[in-house]
Design a protein around this nucleic acid. Sequence first.
RNA 1: GCCCCGUUAGCUCAGUCGGAUAGAGCGCCGGAUUCCUAAUCCGGAGGCCAUAGGUUCAAAUCCUGUACGGGGCACCA
Length: 585
Amino acid sequence: MKNDLIRILKTVLKQIGEENGIDFSNKKVSIQENKEKSHGDYASNLAMVIAKDLSQTPREVAEKICSLLPSEEWIEKVNIAGPGFINFYLKKDTHNEILLLIEESGRDFGRNNSGNGERVLIEYVSSNPTGPLHVGHGRGAAFGSVLSELLRCAGYKVDEEYYVNDHGRQMNILTISIWLRYLHQNGQELKFSKKGYQGVYVEQLAKQLAEEKGTKYNLKENESDLLELLEAQETEEDLDRLIGWGKSFLKENFEEIREFSLREIMSSIKEDLKLFGVNHNLWFNESSMYSNKIDLPDIDKSIKLLSESGFLYEKEEALWFKSTEFGDDKDRVVKRANSDNTYFASDISYHLDKYDRGYDRIINVWGADHHGYLPRVSAAMEALGKSRDKLEVVFIQFANLLRNGEKVSMSTRGGEFIPLIELIEEVSSEAARFFYINRKADQHLDFDLDLAKSQTKDNPLYYIQYAHARICGVFETLKKEGMKLNQELGLDNLNLLNLDKEIEIQKMLLQYPEVISRAAKNSEPHLICYYLKDLSGLFHSYYNSERFLVDDEKLMNSRLFLLKGTKQVISNGLEILGIGAPESM
RNA sequence: GCCCCGUUAGCUCAGUCGGAUAGAGCGCCGGAUUCCUAAUCCGGAGGCCAUAGGUUCAAAUCCUGUACGGGGCACCA
């Protein structure tokens, strides 16, 4: 209907343009939905937009436009109001069409094909494999997961990828930390590096390692070197020396422990993600770019390509990329003076590979603290001749956890972060997802743990799910009384749905597909939460003011049909959020 | 110093890419249940949309400056 109105107005606009010798083809014709009922269903601002070009007052122009409007059977009336708005009032039964559409589309209602089958890669979470997921990762995880689903709804072909930083110093630190704990486990008394990883999980993994491998990695004799190194654990350099020592002592066993650690931690991360309803279908290991395999991306090759582009130079024995040429604040090191590649080097190679895999859109979901990192990555892609626009980054602001109205520290006293799994266990995966999504991504988020657990209308998720359950309850009662929805009778009598509340609900249902496309287009999944809350609110209000199971069968079936459509839309919306729509509560 | 995000009701936040009288929940005040789930609903009070300019027929929305809050500015990952 909205599109029909736009089409009609466009025709009128062209006509006026021709009469006055003005080309209006670049003017945007838009229709807005009126929130104020007395203004009719839709309004157009067209008269005000072109009034100046015609040197007439907006109201005069509006009169002219109205006189040219063809009469359509679904339009009740048209009038001019305010500064020059043209208001359209639709016939009441026009609103029924949406129910037919929902009935036909069912679970597909709200899907569209604006993405046109284009391929999108969404990389998110990508937490370092040096410890379990913690609450700081939750928001990005929920966001990426819902965004993926949303883009699928919009007709994109989506891959969800996790980038595993399994190469470099942090993994070595983890390995050495676990090894030290392992030695302790096997009765070899020693102090622990303050600089290493301290978490409980390190101890658990060490224990597991001891159970699996016995004393295989034990110190064979008195190793005074090690003790000295441990005593001196104060600086990063000490830590690096310890790693060097550990490597030379353990030889190939170091690699074994490293692989064990990586495997175990990644499997716990995967487990947590699964519980959280997050399903990556691709896992990209940083180390694969160092494997020198012909069919895998290669970091040296990428650096060489960049070098050939002429934007690399040497300074103070390090290799620099001239990112300032592409708008970055300063040039960035790609290869350090000690000839190690930087993390940035890996990212160049990794992102180059994303481009080479042929995606139409590449989306990264990053924490807001990484925003300064984007210019250099984009710069590198541009230097390599890639389109900068293809790479989109959504920055997610931090979330605070609140308990009893007070901020909960994100980490425990021991410096260990609160694991995501604890949050999931406390408030449930669904509530956690909902509350993480329930805010615009670029907005700081206060996650109220008590609210997420509460079972009242204060909790928007319960409010929505309750609406769904209530509708199911009505149908349940219907069944108990030995009746069932008479689809045809309902369809034939939709025109009985003419109460204000009924019209409002139908108009709200009509908006659902638009909400979905806008949410997908702008990466704003929170819109779905707000929409579902509004829709549920309308339903609850309707529920309290009218009875559905009435004697008049025509009325009853038409109302049941409206309920059925509402139920469908709530469940479709929740599905995108990865949340169930319960039949009863 | 530079960069990013924010500033809307007492609190937490929406605000349909510029529209008519700025919305919701919580909190506060007052109501509704012999009836499909009261996990709900109805009514009321509560606003200089941080601030100063600019663009426009029209600005919470776009542009610029200022103030305040959060984050970031490594040969770390």
